[in-house]
Amino acid sequence: MTWKLSPEIKAILFDKDGTLVDFDKTWAATNRKGALIAADGNAALADVLLQACGMDPVTGKTRADSMFAAANAGEIAAHMVAHGSPFEAEELVRLLDKTFVEGAESPWPICDLKALMQTLSGTGFAVGIASSDGEASIRRTVEVLELSSEIDFIAGYDSGHGPKPEAGMVLAFAAHLGLEPSQIAMVGDNGHDMEMARAAAAGAAIGVLSGTGTRQSLEALADILIGSVAELPALVAAR
């Protein structure tokens, strides 16, 4: 795929899980914990819920565009209730959100994220994060990774901009910076990230192969595919 980043791009909006942090290493244990909570301690039901939400209980691997890979806590809770969780959906959302904030204490960065963000800001890019995780969990991850001074914008599913793949997070980032959506590049590892970029008429949809998404699931949606965000400086330099 021959493609170059447009000189019009002034800011980069990153997905978090699978894009900035390794999805399975960061979230496998937390998702197991969340499923067991949702199953009210029933281990067999917890495995059913894990599979329903896209995680293999044996390997800990998560499928592309599955509930765990792409959905927010409200959607995951509703899906778990539909597959046998005895909780009311509203109560389960509260329990899962708490679990996911706790899981934010142990992120596994894809690369040296501080160096990456400093390189991008040094080249003149503003940087934001848009995740299907809750805002509190995102902010805690940013704090743990010591990226607070590098990130200009944070949006979660509960930040008031709407969920992925709606356009709201990209549009809010553009408005925050006083830019047009066409000046924003969206970087993510799943189809909903690319679809959000398209919905907002973002200037670029960049897929990364470091998360749960695959070349097959992303190729038709992304302008370009790269192995991971570690390749972004070279992409920026080539424009």
Rank of each mutant, 00 (worst) to 15 (best):
M1D: 11
M1C: 07
K4I: 09
L5S: 05
S6V: 14
S6L: 04
P7W: 03
E8Q: 15
I12A: 07
F14G: 00
K16N: 03
K16L: 04
K16M: 03
D17R: 03
T19V: 06
V21R: 00
D22H: 10
F23M: 04
A28T: 15
T30L: 05
K33V: 04
A35I: 07
L36Y: 08
L36P: 02
I37R: 09
G41M: 12
N42E: 14
V48W: 00
L49E: 07
L49M: 08
C53A: 13
G54M: 10
G54Q: 08
D56H: 11
P57Q: 14
P57C: 13
T59G: 12
T59R: 06
K61P: 00
T62F: 12
A64W: 00
S66F: 13
A70Y: 05
N72G: 15
G74L: 04
I76D: 00
A77D: 08
A78K: 14
G84P: 09
G84Q: 10
P86A: 11
E88I: 04
A89F: 00
A89H: 00
E90P: 00
L96A: 08
D97H: 09
T99P: 01
F100L: 13
E102H: 10
S106G: 00
P107W: 01
W108Q: 05
W108H: 14
C111Q: 03
L113Y: 02
A115K: 15
A115F: 07
L116S: 04
L116N: 04
L116D: 03
M117D: 02
Q118D: 10
T119P: 04
L120P: 06
L120Q: 10
S121M: 12
S121H: 15
G122T: 06
G122N: 11
T123F: 06
V127G: 02
G134M: 13
S137W: 02
R140E: 13
V142D: 06
V144L: 05
L147C: 05
L147E: 02
S149N: 12
S149F: 00
E150H: 06
F153L: 09
A155E: 06
D158C: 08
D158K: 10
G162K: 10
K164E: 06
V170S: 05
A175M: 05
L179H: 12
E180C: 07
E180L: 14
P181M: 11
P181L: 12
P181A: 11
M186K: 14
V187Q: 01
D189K: 02
H192C: 09
M194F: 03
M196C: 07
A197Q: 05
A199P: 04
A199L: 05
A200D: 08
A204M: 09
V208M: 06
V208T: 10
S210C: 14
S210Q: 08
L221P: 02
A222N: 08
D223Y: 09
L225R: 07
I226E: 01
G227S: 14
V229D: 01
A230H: 03
E231V: 07
L232W: 01
P233I: 04
A237G: 12
R239H: 11
